[in-house]
Structure formats: structure tokens, C-alpha cells
Write a protein that binds this DNA or RNA. Sequence first.
RNA 1: GGAGGCAUAGCUCAGUCGGUUAGAGCGCUCGCUUCACAUGCGAGAGGUCGUAGGUUCGAGUCCUACUGUCUCUACCA
Length: 870
Amino acid sequence: MLDKTYDPTQFESGLYKFWLSHGYFTPKAEIGKPYFSMVTPPPNITGQLHIGHGLDNAIQDTLVRFKRMQGYNTLWLPGTDHASIATEVKIVEQLKKEGIDKHDLGREEFLRRAWQWKEKYGGRIVEQLQKLGSSCDWSRLSFTMDEKCSKAVRRTFVSLYNKGLIYRGDRIINWCPVCNTALSDAEVEYSEQDGYFWHYGYTTPDGSTTVTFATTRPETMLGDTAIAVNPNDDRYRHLVGKTVIVPFVNREIPVIADEYVDMQFGTGVVKITPAHDPNDFEVGRRHNLPVIRVMNDDGTMNENAGEFAGLDRYEARKRIVERLKEMGILQKVEPHKHNVGSCYRCHTTVEPIVSKQWFVKMQPLAQPAIDAVKRGEVVFHPERFEKTYLNWMENIRDWCISRQLWWGHRIPVWYCDDCGAEICAETDPDVCPKCGSKHIHQDEDVLDTWFSSALWPFSTLGFFNGSDDFKAFFPTSVLSCGYDIIFFWVARMIFSSLYATGQVPFKHVLMHGIVRDEQGRKMSKSLGNGVDPVEFIDKYGTDTLRFALINGVANGSDIRFAPDKVEGTRNFMNKIWNASRFVLMNCQDKPLKPIGECKLSLADKWILTRLNATVRSITELLDKFELGMAAQCLFDFVWSEFCDWYIELVKPVLYGTDEQARCDTLSVLVYVLDAMLKLLHPFTPCITEQIYQNLPGHGESIMIQRYPTVNDALNFADDCNLVEELKELIAKVRNIRSEYGVAPSKRIRLYVNATDRRIRECDLYLCKLCGLEQAVFGEAPAGDKTVQAVCSAATCQVPLGDLVDKDKEIERLTKELDNVNNEIARANGKLSNAGFLSKAPQNLVDAEKAKLAKYTELQAQLQARLDELK
RNA sequence: GGAGGCAUAGCUCAGUCGGUUAGAGCGCUCGCUUCACAUGCGAGAGGUCGUAGGUUCGAGUCCUACUGUCUCUACCA
């Protein structure tokens, strides 16, 4: 029997262990069997579980449990990400506290520490994920640096290298002076900041002409190697080919003409610093300009900066501006807002710097990935994200994949110190294959974390190991993640998979939004507005968390996580619990019948029909990945139909004396509860299992039961309609009672004039739900003062004696008549419209006619009653 | 600069292929300790679906423009 109060902490973790110990999460790799598979976005091993993981896992687990119950061979593969830069930053911080510098420690010892970190925190995040109830197959738990993933990385790198799709070269990259590494474009975040425009100029050697420009970064002037103007600019045409002098470094640089310069902007003159600006770099290439770096990796000025060497970049900027002022060169300073890029990990302003790095050539890889999506081989949900994806892919630039870090996949390239050969190999070479020299050394850099993440769907399934998992579960069915990692991850998985396996990695991409706080702000450590899912689960249970994150939320839209909603969801769990308790209390030790052998009451037929409708829509919605709507639909069925109406309708039978009817009704109650729990199970796995285990005749676990399907033998459309009419009638009577202030405890009499004789079978329902002492079928005695309830199933009279107030009654009925008249006018309008009659579908025309007939009838009744009163 | 989203009840949001009297939760008002649940029950108030046009027999839904707002993306010195 269920405890009196719903307390998820009593059973959630125990149930999880129960599922694990039975191996329900671990499928066999059966090639050719219909499957459903997903890989989970691997959380960083630096991490604490956050609410975003909660959402991510709730969505995925719901889908996985649904498909598993439908009989698919279902795999949900979990894992963790080594998170190269993020983890390295954390470890460096940790070392700093111990007063140790990473370089003093040395690479090997550093990596030993990193693996220690991984063992400690990688395990913790797995434990936390398990609290969410996720039915992942932990026996297949993967790590981006484990053997099979590392193999995938090496093989893919070598293959791309051999095809010329990976190259090394000097390019402008985004450099983080704090993390001390290059970053990819995707790893830079831009934000608008207040800065200045410094206007000054360079003068020709003869001192005759000064060419004025504006810059936001004056310190880069030390690396200027040209001044550029637009070739069509008449103002400066005469200067092209002349030279000017860069102050401080006294370099003589040419004035060049290049289309890149916008004549309309500023003075129409640009100083060109090829080593520190991506556009200038391109200009420099076109004009064969020298590339002079003036900054060190740590953000200080280098020896090329002359008198400013050694200064921090911002200090140098200040000093240069001061000196320009002193020298009378500075012409004006104006405030200027501009976008500044910062490192997505440490938020330091990044510096565009020319540097030798490894790149993936994107054009040839992007094209097939664009085509596959356009052909519909990968479908985005909601579809608008396809545009986001295509927009990025179609404008993609080469991907900088080398990082000046230690923690990660080391670039599998060696250099021969003797002959200078560059060797890219899957297995570590001992000697130079070209000259046989033993003096070779490996590239110092590691790969961007996302390089290994990009291979995740097939590396984890053992594509490079010829694994059955790959044959049985690839391509995966659905990928679910937040829209914020479309570029980082989704796009890169698509092109990587097409390249490596020739197949798309997944057929559907299900995007969700960001979980925000009550005021719509992003949750963050600095704001302290985050919800800790672990704490939350300890308080409310994982079912509440999951349902609150999913219920009524549209795909791809951000979620405000408000305490109100949590409470409401907890109340829903409580509702499920208590409704189940009600059923179980009543059927204890009582015999039950198979549903097919029961004599079904009107209420039974109604709920069974409604159950079918619910099963149908939920299944359709889940098939379309509309989890939010499916949850909403279940919420309504459980609360508004099963609890509010069916349980109430059934009480007279349960508390009555007809043993036979009782047994039948109990059987239906249990049947519907069982189906309801199964429908709920993918969303709220724990509470449903806990209740299921108390159901008479339950199986081993609810999670391996078959998902409900529509049972056509249990559809009773007519009876269902009748009950809907009955509900309307009951609501009307309740309304009258409430309006007239009849105490709820007061038993009254009701006179019912029903057109449908089956209403006569409903007196038990009417008595219970309208608080009647008796339902009388027929007219009220002539002298009785009554209030009239007019509805489609019947016209009722509620004898309220002296409470009846003629004016109030006229007012009430007039209002109702107005409504009815409006509806009649609307229906007439439609039906007198030739276009509607000829073009609208027939069923709608028929429905409109039926509506007109119904309201005309109601109109007559209401009018008659009003006439009587007046 | 480019792309996209959002604008519906006091608040937070659903609303699928264009087709019932536009819904839910919370809040609010009134009444209830009715034997599953006061984490509850019943009743009620509350909406010109951002503005202006257009398409259509029919528009919250599709199109155009506008206003407000948010996000992504680019990085004009």
C-alpha cells in the first residue's frame, strides 16, 4: 500500500538501483532490429550538474523511455568530455593555490594530475546525472579521451591531413593572453564596450603631408606596415605609392590602395597592422607587406615595440596616447562604442594575433553537411534552427584546431630535427621515415576539445573498432541539446560524420532553450541565481523537476524556472499519488475482471473513450517530439478528467451495495490507472514505478511494459458525448447553487426533463455531483418556485423556494440567451455565406448546422422561460 | 551590417494542417475541513491575440510594412 503522503525521497534512489540491477538500461547490439538510439551531450568533467543538464536529460530520458516501452531496441549512451581548456584552467588554478606553476611541474606530471581530476570529478558528475533518473546505459559510459575516442581522433586527423584538409599555417587567430592559447572563432564572445577613437596621422618623410586616420587600438601602430586608402578615393590618389613614417619605431611605410577601405567611414584612411588584425592581415597578403608582431603571448609588448617593450597591452596603449599628445600628433579623441571579443572561458579580451596554428579546411567539409540538411536527411525541431545552421555553414571559415595546452588530444604530428620532415601518423613513430633520424619531436599542441566531441556519435559506438554497436545503433535517431551549441557541436558532428562514416550522425535534432531564472536572466554563478538540481531533487524529487521543465514548454524556447511552477508540479505529483492511493485503497483484496468481461457503466465508457483519445494524441505528439504538449495533455487527462470527473462519478458505485457493479468499476479504475501510469512513466519515471509496484497483478517493472495503444473495442463515442452533456448539466446546477448561495452541504431536489432517456440512468451521478437528495425525472409541481438550468441534454428545474429571485433569474437567463443568440448569429452568418458552403469542408458545414440546431433549441427554451417570468 | 525569435488574461506561457464560444498554471473574488488529496474541492471575474494593411468562404495562426523587445552572427579601422 502507498504511504499516506507523497515523499519522493523515500523511493527515488532505491528505484534507480532496482532498474540498474536488472540491466534495463543496457540493450544488446542486435543488428537489423528496429532501434532507437541517442548519445547524450557529454558534460564537462569540470562540472557541477546544473539545471540545463536537468532539462537535457529530462527530454532525452522521456524519449528514450517512451521508445523503449514501444518495443524498440533502445540505447542511450552517456559520457563525459575532457573539456580541454576548461579543465586545464581549473587545474592551473588549483596548482596556483599550491604555489605551483604549470611549467615547473612539467607536462607529464601535469597530465597525471589532470587524470586524477578526471577520476574525481568525472565520477561525481555521473552520480549526479543518475539522480535525474536517466535511463542511460552506464555500461557503455564513454569519455572523449578514452581508448576508442582517442583512436577516432587520431584516425580522423590523419585522414584529414592526408587529404589536405588539415593544414598548418600562419594566420590571424584569436589569442587568449590568460589561457595562453589560440581559440576558434566560435570560442570568442563579443560584447559592446565603451572605447575611444584616437585620431592622428603619419607624415611623409619630407614633412609636407600628414595622413590622418582613426584607430581604437593605438598600440598596434608599432606593427603598422602600411597606410591604406581606397583606389577610387580622389582625396588620396596622389598619395598612393608615397611613404609615411611611423613614430616611435621610425619605420617608413608605403601608402597603398585597396578596395577593403571604406571611403565613407572615418577619414577614409586605414592604418594596416597585418600581425594584429584579420582584415589587415588579408590586405597585407595582397600587397606583400611585412608582418610585424608587437605583442607577446601574455599580452605584453615585445621587443618590436621599441620603448614600449615589456609593457602590458593596455599600459602601452595609455603611454602611446600620452606620448602622441606630447608630440602634438594626436588630433582628437572621441568616445566610441565597439564590439570587443572575449574568451568564452575566462572572459579576458582576446587579441587577434598572427600565429602558426593548425586549421581544418572547412569548405569541402561544409558542403556535404549543407546538402544533407537541405535534402532532409537531418531534420531540425523546431525547423527554424535549420536556418541558423545553414547560415553559419554557408559562411564558415577555416577552423583553428590547435590549442597551446597540455590537457587534450595531442596533435599527432612529429617534426624531424635533422631533415625537417613533418610526419603525421596514427601510431607514434620512433624514427623519421624520411631520413631515419631518431631526432624527432612531437607537436606540442593539443586539439580543440570540440574536435573529439565532433566525432562523438560514431566514436562512442566504436565505428573505428568495427563494433556491433555501430552496426546496430547508427545513425542515431535523435540528438537533443540546447540551441547554444549548434555551431560548437551539432554542425561539427554532421560534417565529421559525413566525412568519416559517409552517413549523417542522427536523423533528428531536437533543440531546447536555456533555463533562466524567474526574471528571465541567465542563471550564473556571479548572479547567484542558479537552481542546484541536486538540492532541488533532494527537496522535491526528480519527477517534479523533470515535469516542471517539460510541461507546456515549446521546443527551442527558453524557460523561466519559477517557484510557482515547481509548486504546481509538485502538487500534480501529489495528485497522481493520491488518486492512485484512492484506487488502491478501494480495490484491496477485491477480485478484478479483465476489462473485456466488465459490464461498463456510462462513466466507464466515457473514461475509456477519453483514455483512447489521450493515448492517441500523446503518442502522436511524442512522435513529433512535442514533449511539452504531450505533458500538458497528460496533465489535463489525469487531473481534469480522471480525478475531477471519473473518480467522482465512480464513488456512488464504490460506496454502494451492488457488489457486481463495484467489481466492474474497480476493474475499470485499475485498468485506466495502469494505462495512465504507463503514459506518465517516460515523464515521471519514479512515482509511476512506485505506484505500479503496488498495482494488483503488476509486472516486474513498469519501464519494460508495453506503452498503451488505442483500443478500438473501448471507444464509445455516443456515450462519451452523453457524459459531456451531463457534465455541462452538472456544471450548470453547481453554478446555480453557487450563485444562489445554497450551502454545499444542503441536499436539494432536482427536476430533470431530458430529451435523451439515457439521462434517467444518470441519477446516481447527478445526486453525487450536484449534492441532491433526489433527482426527479419530470416537471416540478406547479406551485414550486424553481430556477431553470437549460442545457443540451436536459432542461432542469432547481426548486429553491424563497431563495428564487425573479429579477436575478431574468438577468441570469438573459445573459445566457445573449450568448446563445450570438452563437446563432455566428452560425447563421457562416451558413448564409455561399463561399463557406461551397468551399469549406463538409464536416465543418455539418458541424455548423448541428450547432445552429442545438442553439436554436436552447434559444426556444430560454425564451419560453423568460416569457414565463415576465 | 546579416539572420532569426518573441509580442495572446494581472503574471508566466501553450495554441500542431488557417476552421468549436482563444486555453492552462499562478494570482484575484466568492463559497467549502464533502470519508484520495486544503499540495485539495466547487463557482466566478479577467482577452479588440502589438499597430496598419493584405490573402482567404474563414486569420491568434499565412503575407507585407511598422512599433517594441530579445537572441544569434559579422567585426568598419
